[in-house]
Design a protein around this nucleic acid. Structure first.
Lengths: 214, 214
DNA sequence: GTCTATAACGAGATAGAC
DNA sequence: GTCTATCTCGTTATAGAC
């Protein structure tokens, strides 16, 4: 990467090619969310973004490399978005509430759906599998950060395996979006998070040393 | 359906066609597990089962209808298998142990992996989506049965939303197999279930009315 | 019921004009 | 950097011999 001379270029110059690349990446994302991995062909992506099919191969070499670039880019962007949303959350019940909101948002936006789709698609492609796993890691890390925040200072903090918990919670959301996308049921999701809320309430009660029943 | 005359046919007759149909269904299952939804073409399935590609269309009409028949059949069979394994389990920690075993087995066998793959593949196909959701329901019901068993007689039994819990747990396993298949990590899975074991132990302690810490 | 052969089409990818 | 045109291959699916 060359650093532009400041006297020459004041703002980081975005070439027209960069703009096209982003258009293609956006279209690939949209296609993955709308049509799934089986529908994410070069033709379908080009139709979604209303550009020429050949541009995909000019800019990314192959559809597969485009999809890999797509998950890398959007994971990075979306994780950063979500990270801002969990910042400052120190209460478990607040975290559950934010999680419910983010899940609902993501059902529209599709960033986790896209991860699930690429994960399924990478099943027979080790190289792509590696890229997808790499892109999924920041999501797990994000969850771990959130969990550590809300359990900081708790008497059980020292006993909790945050890494494993984050792995489980991330997988849960992955599976959840897979199912939710297939059978959209807002009420089911509402009940799910109200259950999580109940569990978090019980947990807070127990941690405080109070009896659960009474 | 005609009932065969007992004097004529002693055992329910399986035509040679039925046997072929099962071969095709088995091959479709194997292909889905090994190659994923993107690799489950008519040719690939035929190669897996070492039969002629045209048989798929003769017996099932289309690849899609074959895949739908596949998930219907194997979900039914596998859920029945698993149901036998959770029979008589009344202890939460025993359930966790069985769940860990079944998860490990399924990583080899692939019945849940197959559901995850078809779920991803059905994203852009409402009709297939419906079939997959239908096939997933018995899994959720199975989990609900297991949960009801271990919480039967517990003082918190009346407060627990078993249906929602089953939905969540099923989704968790779905996501888990999706990730595990992509990045096989036996140690991670071991830690996961040891965590679940810890949680179930904590839960039993709390339900018994004893303090969690001390 | 199973085979071979092939039609009809969509896929990824490239060449070459602009 | 973007376009049209096209190649090649794999795909679903069918026709017709056996």
């Amino acid at each position: 990467m060359t650093v532009p001379n400041v006297t020459e270029v004041a703002v980081p110059s975005r070439t027209i090619g960069d703009i096209t690349k982003e258009r293609i990446l956006d279209a690939a994302f949209d296609t993955l969310v709308d049509e799934g991995i089986t529908g994410a062909s070069a033709r379908a992506i080009a139709a979604h973004g209303e550009f020429n099919q050949a541009l995909i191969f000019y800019h990314f070499g192959s559809v597969r490399d485009l999809l890999i670039a797509t998950i890398e880019r959007s994971s990075q962007i979306q994780v950063e978005r979500y990270r801002q949303r969990i910042e400052g959350i120190t209460d478990l019940s607040d975290l559950v509430h934010v999680a419910a909101t983010l899940h609902a948002e993501d059902m529209e936006r599709g960033s986790i759906t896209m991860v699930a789709q690429l994960m399924a698609g990478a099943a027979s492609d080790p190289e792509m599998g590696h890229a997808v796993v790499q892109a999924f890691q920041p999501w797990i890390d994000l969850v771990e950060t959130a969990l550590r925040q809300v359990f900081a200072g708790s008497p059980i903090e020292a006993f909790l395996p945050f890494g494993d918990m984050a792995y489980a919670v991330s997988s849960l959301f992955l599976g959840l979006e897979l199912v939710s996308k297939l059978a959209p049921d807002q009420e089911q999701d509402d009940r799910l998070f109200s259950m999580m809320n109940m569990v978090s309430g019980m947990l807070e009660t127990v941690i405080a040393g109070q009896p659960l029943l009474g």
